[in-house]
């Protein structure tokens, strides 16, 4: 114990009595300052274009879920619940383009006992406002219109059926509203239906 205390005291004394060389800095001599021309301020000629600063990626994924109502117009007037689960690919026409091709496929259910496999394509147009500065986030795809035509194949009221449907889709901040017309032919009847659905449309791989 005594030894430890002595060691500690010796260590403290060594720190306190450590010879420190006093530092007497030599004042630096003034350095020569060369003459520089006054710098120019170069400005862009005209408004700054935005093309190459747009995202170069052209292909995205898409997942669309829609819930709503189908109203059968022909042969009888009746309404039913409908559900769509679709996936697809968006291919933009080019960098800076507001237009894109949509190819989608999935499952379509209507409460009339209809189960359809769906495959189709359409055209999407970004209608949101353009930002003037490329460094800002884009808002043009926050409002998007689409016209989509799908082919249908499946079962309608326990009969095999084929059909077509045309949709007008409006997407705002990921919320999609679709209205349109569907025609389905079975061996016994041609059914014409109008529909209104609401759901979500999520793009995959699209940076915001």
């Amino acid at each position: 114990m005594m030894f430890d205390a002595a060691s500690y005291l010796a260590c403290v004394l060594a720190q306190v009595l450590q010879p420190t060389a006093p530092w007497h800095p030599t004042p630096p001599e003034p350095q020569f300052e060369p003459t520089f021309e006054r710098p120019r301020v170069v400005r862009e000629q005209g408004p700054s274009p935005t093309f190459y600063r747009l995202e170069p990626r052209l292909v995205y994924g898409l997942v669309r879920t829609q819930l709503g109502v189908h109203v059968r117009i022909v042969p009888t007037s009746v309404a039913a619940f409908t559900f769509d689960q679709l996936g697809g690919v968006i291919v933009r026409a080019g960098r800076g383009s507001r237009a894109a091709l949509l190819v989608e496929g999935g499952y379509h259910y209507v409460g009339f006992g209809s189960h359809f496999a769906v495959a189709g394509a359409g055209l999407l147009i970004d209608a949101g406002p353009e930002q003037s500065d490329a460094s800002q986030r884009s808002t043009r795809d926050r409002l998007r219109f689409g016209v989509i035509v799908d082919g249908l194949a499946g079962i309608n009221e326990s009969q095999s059926a084929l059909g077509l449907r045309a949709s007008l889709v409006l997407v705002m901040y990921g919320v999609s509203v679709a209205v349109g017309h569907q025609w389905a032919r079975t061996p016994t009847v041609d059914a014409h239906e109008a529909f209104l659905t609401v759901g979500s449309t999520i793009t995959i791989g699209e940076r915001r």
């Binding site: 400005r43 862009e44 005209g46 190459y52 600063r53 170069p56």
Partner: peptide, 13 residues
Amino acid sequence: RRHFREAICAAHD
């Protein structure tokens, strides 16, 4: 036209 920011991205790609 001194649109250097666009030109830099054009050269980048």
